[in-house]
């Protein structure tokens, strides 16, 4: 009977509890949200705000609406940079992920002698700070006193200076590959480790060879990791900055101020004081990266399903 008499009370209590738990949830994510808003949302909002204005050395600041966006979309220097990173993306990312996958499979195969040593040494370049890596490779690429110069002297070849020729973009790709193969290898390797051993046993009983195991079990099992690594790499390619920026002092005539979109945004704001236009370039580039990454993710997911 009491249960019949008191129904209204139950939802009330539940409601209060729900309300309280709702706030408790916010309490837990609060610290994160605060930092997120401060270091992520605020800069984006500020960039959006900046991109709607124009500041001149003579004449001050004025509201220009979407003029900056129109200008960027028709700016050959911007598209030159976008084209370059796109080419970089199409060539370097498959090469890098291919090598990473190969190494991860080799390590996972259990047939490798000194597996842990191998894994560690391949990962090691990732531990070298990007700036140091670019400097180091910059020295090695020297065709007078660097490794390339030594190679030419020793074998009588005439490899041109990688930093002052058409080899520049491949040379940068080489640095990035060297640095990130280990990182991606670890992602793939850890995904491979969680594949149930029983699947391999079943495959063996069915008479599948090692290549068959790879193509039918291992690669499909780590598709999620492949998609994630691809998205990371796409973002990394579009944001290419460190390597060209460091190598610029060694090869200023080949690495222009608009060599990559990020370098362009940097030059615009730091040597041209065009903060507004720089913010616009950064936003367009962010949106572009998001679109490409999202498309890849959608495609990756669909296959997975």
């Amino acid at each position: 009977m009491t249960t019949l008499a008191s129904p209204p009370a139950v939802p009330k209590i539940q409601g209060r509890m729900r309300r309280r738990s709702r706030w408790a949830g916010w309490g837990f994510v609060g610290p994160f949200m605060a930092v997120f808003a401060l270091v992520f949302l605020a800069p984006i909002v500020y960039s959006l705000y900046l991109s709607l204005f124009q500041t001149q050395l003579v004449g001050g600041t004025s509201f220009v609406g979407l003029d900056n966006y129109a200008r960027a979309l028709g700016d050959p220097q911007f598209w030159d940079g976008v084209g370059r990173v796109t080419l970089f993306l199409l060539v370097q990312v498959p090469v890098m992920l291919g090598i990473s996958l190969l190494v991860a499979l080799a390590i996972d195969s259990g047939r490798l002698y000194g597996r842990d040593f191998f894994r560690l040494t391949i990962f090691l370049p990732y531990a070298v700070p990007g700036v140091v890596a670019a400097l180091m490779w910059g020295f090695m690429y020297g065709d007078r006193f660097g490794l390339v110069g030594n190679f030419n002297d020793l074998f009588g070849t005439s490899i041109p200076d990688p930093l002052a020729s058409v080899l520049l973009l491949p040379a940068i790709g080489n640095i990035v590959t060297w640095q990130f193969v280990g990182y991606n290898m670890l992602i793939f390797y850890s995904a491979l480790r969680v594949v149930p051993v029983s699947l391999y046993e079943a495959a063996e009983i069915d008479g599948a060879g090692p290549w068959r195991v790879i193509s039918a079990i291992k690669v499909p099992a780590i598709r999620g990791a492949l998609v994630v690594a691809t998205i990371f790499s796409i973002i990394g390619s579009f944001q290419l900055f460190n390597e060209p920026s460091i190598l610029q002092s060694l090869s200023p005539n080949y690495i222009s101020t608009h060599y990559t979109p990020n370098l362009y945004a940097y030059s615009l704001s730091f040597s041209g004081q065009q903060y507004n236009y720089s913010a616009t370039v950064a936003i367009i580039m962010g949106v572009l990266t998001m679109l490409v990454a999202y498309a890849v993710q959608l495609r990756g997911m669909r296959k997975e399903a």
Binding site: P252, N253, S256, T257, H258, S271, G272
Partner: peptide, 10 residues
């Protein structure tokens, strides 16, 4: 001039 010099290599 600071800006002008920065685009000299370009």
């Amino acid at each position: 001039q600071v800006y002008a010099n920065s685009v000299f290599p370009d």
